[in-house]
């Protein structure tokens, strides 16, 4: 089992994922989606895969999110409460979750030693090497989000 930080990350990932699906505003859903992707990048960093984490941030949290934002821009923001056949979906997804967890405990995947790395070292490396990059990226993303919000608001007001 993981420590408390892991479970915090877990809670943030799942929580942001659920918010991304359930949020009434599509724009805030997109923001929540970005949070989710960034948290996964954090998990990659935690697994001692900084390059993968960087790529995750760059392509997912950067490129895909921008695309999503543009799509939302083109279509127009929707405030409708998303509806759907929730019961079937919940049952199936819970089934998947239980099955997957059950089999992960059933299988012999923990016979191999699992490499854990010190996140302190990782954090040092990250701050030393990638902090600037991350900060710049974060600003750009924030600016884009703000611009997108502004444009959408203007459009709605114009209508």
């Amino acid at each position: 089992m993981g420590n408390v930080y892991f479970w915090i990350i877990y809670a943030v990932v799942i929580g942001s994922a659920i918010i991304a699906l359930e949020a009434t505003s599509l724009l805030w859903a997109a923001v929540s989606f970005v949070v989710l992707l960034s948290e996964i990048a954090l998990v990659y960093f935690g697994l001692n895969m900084p390059v993968l984490g960087g790529v995750q941030l760059a392509i997912y949290a950067g490129g895909v999110t921008i695309l999503v934002l543009f799509a939302i821009m083109m279509i127009g923001e929707s405030y409708k409460k998303p509806e759907g056949k929730a019961v079937k979906a919940i049952v199936l997804s819970l089934l998947l979750l239980i099955l997957g967890t059950f089999f992960s405990f059933l299988s012999a995947i923990d016979t191999l030693p699992f490499k854990t790395f010190s996140t302190e070292v990782l954090g040092t490396v990250f701050v030393e090497k990638y902090s600037f990059f991350t900060i710049v990226l974060g600003f750009i993303v924030s600016a884009l989000l703000y611009m997108a919000n502004a444009i959408i608001t203007k459009k709605r007001e114009a209508k």
Partner: peptide, 20 residues
């Protein structure tokens, strides 16, 4: 499409159960 996806997921689960 959502219905098709539901069948698809159910099928995946069934397949996993079958294989295991």
């Amino acid at each position: 499409v959502i219905d098709y996806l539901t069948y698809f997921v159910a099928g995946v689960i069934t397949l996993v159960l079958l294989i295991l």
